[in-house]
């Protein structure tokens, strides 16, 4: 089944991005086609490669990037939300790309299910 995912919060303050990550991983393991993960609101902070969590904690920026690399997953950061929060190409983590909000509506149309994670 084709699945689209929307992540509305960043990697630390809320659990939303963690839950989305575990959901996407499980969906891929079950053979579903995750068409795109779209990062909106503070969710754009998941793409900040300058983020440095402490060594004994998970690094969601890297985990998302690794998942994207391994499964050719499309991780899209909303440009308008990103610019406001200082997320630009210079600090974009590997595996993410910046594009327009239309990419969210597009995946909502194309996917069989759209699942939102937020606060």
């Amino acid at each position: 089944m084709k699945i689209g995912v929307l992540v509305n919060e960043g990697p630390f303050t809320h659990q939303a991005s963690d839950t989305a990550y575990h959901f996407v991983k499980a969906a891929i393991e079950k053979g579903h086609d995750v068409l795109r993960v779209f990062f909106y609101y503070d969710g754009v902070n998941n793409a900040n490669k300058l983020s440095e969590p402490q060594a004994d904690d998970r690094n969601l920026v890297k985990l998302w990037g690794d998942l994207a690399k391994e499964h050719n997953l499309d991780l899209v950061v909303c440009i308008a939300a990103a610019l406001r929060r200082g997320i630009k190409d210079e600090i974009l983590a590997e595996g993410f790309r910046i594009s327009g909000l239309g990419q969210l509506i597009e995946v909502g149309i194309a996917a069989d299910r759209t699942v939102m994670f937020g606060d």
Binding site: M1, H22, F23, A26, H32
Partner: peptide, 9 residues
């Protein structure tokens, strides 16, 4: 999480 995916599907 796998059960979560199944519920969504």
């Amino acid at each position: 999480y796998g059960g979560f995916v199944d519920l969504v599907v």
